[in-house]
Design a protein around this nucleic acid. Structure first.
Lengths: 150, 150
DNA sequence: AGGATTTATATCGCGCACGATGTAATCGTG
DNA sequence: CACGATTACATCGTGCGCGATATAAATCCT
């Protein structure tokens, strides 16, 4: 394929040319980098993301957490039950709308934030990227996500 | 946070500032875009990636597939058994080294490639990105992966 | 040669992640 | 106000994905 040609069918079918595979495999790579850091908090990577959302804004419904994380209730419900079992959150039906479940941090869940303080910095340094560069890449990928979900 | 400051602890802990979450959620978004396309091939997204690797180079070991896809045998073995069950591949112990399992396309597996021909183009157009831009982003993410795995 | 070590794959248990479906509460419309 | 539709969450079945562990074959080392 020269610069002037459009990519051939051969090229299009090569794994190394797949943007999706770059994303897919880098996602796994992130999970591996997080593992030792999160083991100390007794959290999995998806559980950590839930905690981050709750640290940002406590007392949310399952639905609002799902919207924020792009996850379904079928994924969240069991995860939240595990976090509840670990004592980091509570799950209670909303008094005024019994369909909703309000998820709140416990004292222990709030305390965990301090233990997690160094995680973002450690991850950032594992990327080997400059902060500004990192922000730009993050933004590009987020806007790709928007296109894909359209 | 002004331009001159380094990011505060508050900023570092915000989900929307996580590069990893951009990757994580965009990976899910890709899976959703692929779903209707791959349903017609009776493949899941990870199974499709395995087939792409085999279409590139037939007759590989479980180990070489894992190296290519960054997956462990504990993930691949069950996936390959499913693909074998669907008649797309065969799994046979290597005669000269009985530890290895050689994975080969069946006639039906090779034929599937034609049905998959339009998938890469459809995906590319769902990204809404220009080919050159797409290549650049893919490359940036792949090199991030390399940093993370270091 | 032969026992220790390494390598390649498989198995198991756990936790995500989803689509399909179920259930109960709420809303909306006549 | 009643009843059909919608909403919010939960449940179930399937398929990743991994770490820990198992098993068998190949290799290494004297």
């Amino acid at each position: 394929m020269t610069k002037a040609d459009s990519p051939s069918q051969e090229d299009l079918m090569k794994l190394d040319n797949f943007l999706c595979f770059a994303i897919y495999s880098t996602n796994h790579a992130f999970t591996r980098v997080y593992k030792p850091l999160l083991d100390e908090l007794d959290l999995t990577y998806p559980q950590y993301l839930v905690m981050v959302v709750l640290w940002e804004k406590d007392d949310q419904t399952v639905g609002s957490l799902g919207e924020r994380l792009f996850l379904e209730s079928s994924t969240l419900t069991p995860m939240l039950k595990r976090l509840e079992g670990m004592g980091y959150i509570t799950r209670l039906r909303d008094r005024t709308d019994e369909r909703q479940v309000r998820v709140k941090l416990t004292e222990s869940g709030r305390a965990l934030r301090k233990k997690a303080d160094r995680v973002p910095h450690d991850i950032a340094s594992a990327t080997g990227m400059e902060p500004a560069e990192l922000v730009r890449l993050k933004q590009e990928i987020a806007s790709l996500r928007t296109s894909l979900l359209r």
